[in-house]
Design a binder for these strands. Structure first.
Length: 567
RNA sequence: GCGCCUGUAGCUCAGCUGGAUAGAGCAACUGCCUUCUAAGCAGUAGGCCAAGGGUUCAAGUCCCCUCAGGCGCACCA
């Protein structure tokens, strides 16, 4: 049950009825028969609370249609509004706003909803059980994860949680790029380090475009410790393959471990190589051929993107017969949307891949899949700073800075919260030095502190024999201080916030919501005491803060952040 | 050159299908702990919403143009 939505519906119905009556009375002109006036009625929460609980601009919207002054229209509507016990008073203000002041009953019923639903409060049925896959991070398995993956991880994981709350059947997936060029490069790099370790630095030249990181040499060294030098006599291809098989598995295990530490658990780890082995890549290309979107040139097979209104054509199969990443990606999305029958696929990509979005969607259209079934959340890249300067390498270790390095300096709670503070589209500078120094300033502690404070009061009162009462035994109407009401209002907002976060694919809304909720609580805490002589009032406030505790804990759990009872 | 993203307080960012006086946090300043956790609260100050045009009763929000920054434009992924 979404209380706010119900209240809005009540108001829409009332306004609509007022309109209809006014038209019947002849106080307002008759609109065209095909005009759906009801759909134009949008009550919204005014920024300024003195403008009522909900405001509606319908009179201004209809001014032109009716050729009347907005205030006149508003007066006609208001004088014909049906009686409604939830509406305390209605005022016409400003240019023609109709402001609704409601009784507090709807706010009080929030406490009942929280009691009934517990930590599930806030869940809605926007998704109606539709199957959606969120694919995120999908970091290159040739090395450890960087700061961008840290942001993408927090973003994707929380987006998945938000969609779960919104009623979708969500699968989290990691796409392992264990095929293609970068694996080839990985193999060449490993091979070079392997030979250098056994036969000396000068025995083989390190590939120009190879992976320079120390982790490559470490893999080669560990490989030698296990297998000795027996691979030296094999063909280069056999040796490379053995090295790749060994190092890739190690890397994947490390990726899994790092992500688990970051509290991200995937339902599926999907390997690109399986798409090649199963023939799905070939089938995707055949399908494109069949539908007339391919042609051959210079010995390569091309996708005719110009035919789909795009500027540039793309290679699907190289001259050497090896399919491109793009071809595999088309097969992958066919696998998601056709083979595995997901209704909706969401990918979290770094903004540097934005050029790929339109191509991918068009390619889906070309194989007969509705492109709107794929959404891509583009995340702006993280620019890593250290001591106020742009940093590429960690000054401490000399290696590039990884997710695990980050988690040495700041807590998982702080990292997840920080990376979900801003919308995906905002460019982000991340100063590791500052983050480590000021981790106490991280707003996550502000929210956790609110939770701990509530727990502390509950503990104290419990020791004195006072427990939280059931909603039906509490005189909630005693809650009427401004800070009590704004806290109630904020609690009431959660389902609506979930809805907006899900619709806009912006989990950062929820992070900001829970901060605002904490603000409401802290204000309440400073202006109203819970432990007061008036037992009825104490019980009402106790109910209020316990409900707040449940909501904060629930939201933090959704974001996979701990909710400490003491700080 | 073409395309995508961004530009709002000193700094980092919100601003919901256009709505009433543009909001937070940090930094600065002033108050509030013998009473439930001061990791908190209340308040002051800080703005030509990058510049210019347009649409509208109404523009930070929509359209056009310019400027600045980031990122793309491979038989890489």
């Amino acid at each position: 049950m979404n209380i706010q939505e119900n209240v809005k519906n009540t108001i829409v119905t009332a306004i609509n009825q007022g309109l209809v009556t006014a038209i019947e009375n002849g106080e307002l002109p008759k609109p065209n028969a095909d005009m759906d006036i009801k759909s134009l009625i949008y009550p919204e929460v005014p920024k300024d609370t003195t403008h009522g609980d909900f405001a509606c601009n319908i009179a201004m919207v209809l001014a032109k249609t009716f050729s009347m002054a907005p205030r006149k229209i508003a007066e006609a509507i208001v004088s014909n509004l049906p009686k409604c016990e939830d509406i305390e008073k209605v005022e016409i203000a400003g240019a023609g706003f109709i402001n609704f002041y409601l009784t507090n009953n709807w706010l009080y019923s929030t406490l009942e909803a929280i009691e009934n639903q517990g930590e599930a409060y806030g869940k809605i049925d926007l998704g109606k059980g539709k199957k959606v896959m969120v694919e995120f991070v999908s970091a290159n398995p040739t090395g450890p994860m960087h700061m961008g993956n840290a942001r993408g991880g927090a973003l994707g994981d929380c987006l998945a949680s938000v969609l779960e709350y919104a009623g979708y059947d969500v699968t989290r997936e990691f796409y392992i790029n264990d095929a293609g060029n970068q694996i080839e490069k990985f193999g060449k790099s490993l091979n070079a380090r392997y030979i250098q370790l056994l036969k000396g630095e000068d025995a083989i030249e390190f590939p120009e475009d190879g992976y320079q990181g120390e982790d490559i040499a470490e893999h080669a060294k560990a490989f030698i410790e296990i297998n000795g030098d027996k691979h030296l006599n094999m063909s280069e291809n056999e040796r490379k393959q053995a090295l790749i098989d060994y190092a890739l598995e190690k890397n994947i295990v490390a990726l899994k471990a790092d992500l688990e530490k970051y509290r991200i658990h995937y339902d599926v780890w999907f390997r690109e190589s399986t798409l090649h082995e199963s023939g799905e890549v070939k089938r995707a290309i055949d399908k494109l051929k069949e539908n007339g979107y391919t042609y051959e040139e210079d010995g390569a097979i091309w996708l005719n993107c110009e035919k789909m209104g795009m500027e540039k054509n793309e290679v699907l199969v190289r001259q050497n017969g090896i399919p491109t990443y793009f071809a595999a990606d088309i097969a992958y999305h066919m696998n998601k949307l056709e083979t595995r029958k997901f209704d909706w696929a969401i990918n979290v990509w770094g903004a540097d891949h934005h050029g790929h979005v339109a191509r991918m969607k068009n390619a889906l259209g070309a194989v007969g899949i509705e492109p709107s079934r794929l959404d891509v959340v583009l995340m702006q890249l993280v620019r890593l700073m250290q001591n106020g300067e742009v940093a590429r390498m960690s000054k401490r270790t000399g290696k590039s800075i990884t997710l695990s390095d980050l988690l040495v300096d700041i807590s998982v709670d702080a990292a997840r919260f920080f990376f979900n503070l801003r919308s995906a589209g905002s460019h982000l500078d991340f100063d590791l030095t500052l983050a480590a120094e000021q981790s106490n300033d991280n707003p996550v502690f502000y929210v956790q502190y609110a939770h701990a404070r509530i727990c502390s009061i509950l503990r104290l009162l419990k020791e004195e024999g006072t427990d939280v009462k059931a909603f039906s035994d509490v005189k909630v109407e005693l809650l009427k201080e401004p800070d009590e009401l704004s806290l109630l209002k904020k609690l009431c907002d959660l389902p609506e916030e979930i809805k907006m976060a899900a619709e806009s694919l912006e989990p950062s809304r929820i992070t900001r919501y829970v901060m605002e909720l904490a603000t409401c609580f802290h204000s309440f805490y400073n202006s109203c005491r819970v432990k007061v002589d008036d037992t009825e009032l104490m019980n009402a406030r106790l109910k209020l803060i316990d409900s707040t505790r449940i909501v904060i804990a629930g939201v933090l759990k959704m974001l996979k952040i701990t909710a400490p009872e003491k700080m």
